[in-house]
Lab assay of single mutants.
Amino acid sequence: KVMEIKLIKGPKGLGFSIAGGVGNQHIPGDNSIYVTKIIEGGAAHKDGRLQIGDKILAVNSVGLEDVMHEDAVAALKNTYDVVYLKVAKP
Rank of each mutant, 00 (worst) to 15 (best):
V62G: 07
P11Y: 08
S32F: 06
V82W: 12
F16C: 03
L76E: 01
V83L: 09
G10W: 04
I27N: 13
I5D: 00
I5N: 00
M68L: 13
V35I: 13
T79M: 07
L14D: 00
A72E: 01
K77A: 09
L14P: 06
K37C: 15
A72R: 01
L14I: 06
L76W: 02
K55A: 10
R49I: 11
K77Q: 09
T36H: 10
T79P: 14
P11N: 11
P28R: 11
L85P: 01
I38H: 00
V73H: 11
A74C: 14
Y34K: 03
N78C: 14
V73M: 09
V83I: 12
D47E: 15
Q51K: 15
I39P: 07
K86F: 05
V73P: 02
P90W: 07
N78E: 12
M3F: 15
I38F: 03
I8L: 12
E65V: 10
G42R: 06
T36E: 08
A43F: 03
S61G: 12
L7D: 02
G63F: 11
I39W: 08
G63Y: 13
Y80L: 09
G13T: 04
G23M: 05
E65H: 13
H45V: 04
G21N: 03
H45I: 06
D54R: 00
H69V: 08
L50K: 00
K77W: 07
L7K: 01
D81Q: 15
L50F: 02
E40V: 08
D30M: 03
D54E: 02
A58H: 07
Q51G: 14
V62F: 15
D71M: 09
D71G: 08
I27M: 14
V35T: 03
P11I: 12
G29W: 04
K89D: 04
V2K: 06
V67F: 10
E4L: 09
M3R: 05
Y80G: 06
V82A: 11
S61W: 08
I39M: 12
V82C: 12
H26P: 04
L85F: 06
V87Y: 06
D47C: 07
L76A: 02
K86R: 10
S61F: 13
A88D: 14
E4P: 04
G29H: 13
M3V: 05
G63L: 12
G29L: 06
V82D: 13
V35G: 00
G53V: 01
E4Y: 14
D66C: 13
H69M: 08
V73L: 11
G15P: 01
M68N: 13
V22T: 09
Q51Y: 05
D81T: 11
H45N: 13
D54F: 07
G48A: 14
K77G: 10
G10Q: 10
P90K: 07
I52A: 14
I27D: 09
A75W: 08
G10F: 04
V2N: 15
M68P: 10
Y80C: 10
L64W: 07
I27G: 05
I56K: 00
I38L: 12
I38R: 01
L50S: 01
I27C: 08
G21I: 01
E70S: 15
E70M: 13
H69L: 06
L64R: 01
T36Y: 12
L64Q: 04
M3P: 03
I18P: 01
K86V: 07
N60F: 00
G48P: 02
E4S: 11
P28A: 08
V2F: 15
S61C: 13
L14T: 04
I27H: 11
D81A: 11
N31I: 03
I33L: 07
I38G: 00
K86G: 04
I56D: 00
P28E: 04
A58G: 15
A74F: 07
N24M: 12
A88P: 04
E65A: 11
I52R: 10
K86H: 08
S32Q: 07
I56Q: 00
G15K: 02
D54Y: 10
F16V: 11
A75C: 09
G13P: 06
Q51D: 10
G29T: 09
Y80V: 10
G48R: 12
Y80S: 07
D71R: 13
E4T: 12
T36Q: 09
M68V: 14
I38T: 03
Y34A: 02
K9I: 15
V22I: 06
M68F: 10
G42P: 01
T36S: 10
V82T: 13
V87P: 01
I27F: 15
A88S: 11
F16R: 01
A74M: 12
Q51H: 09
G10T: 15
M3E: 05
V62I: 12
P90Y: 15
D30F: 04
E70T: 15
T36A: 12
K46L: 11
A43M: 08
I33K: 02
H69P: 14
G15E: 03
D71I: 06
N24L: 07
A88H: 13
K9V: 10
L64V: 13
G13V: 03
H26Q: 05
D30K: 04
V83Y: 08
P90F: 07
G53T: 03
L50M: 11
D47R: 00
Y80R: 10
K9D: 04
A19V: 06
I33T: 03
I5F: 14
K89C: 08
E65K: 14
R49L: 10
L57K: 07
G20V: 02
I8S: 11
E65D: 14
D81Y: 08
A74W: 13
I39A: 09
V73F: 08
K12N: 06
G41V: 02
Y34G: 00
D81F: 07
K9E: 04
T79N: 13
Y34M: 10
L57F: 05
E65R: 10
K86L: 07
L7Q: 02
S17R: 14
G23H: 09
I5M: 06
K6C: 06
D54G: 01
A88N: 08
I38C: 03
S61R: 14
G13Q: 04
V35W: 00
P90H: 10
D47V: 03
Y34T: 05
P90T: 08
L64M: 15
D66K: 12
A72Q: 01
P90L: 08
D47H: 04
G48L: 03
I27W: 09
K55P: 01
I56Y: 00
I33A: 02
V35M: 02
D66I: 04
I39Y: 09
V59R: 00
P90V: 11
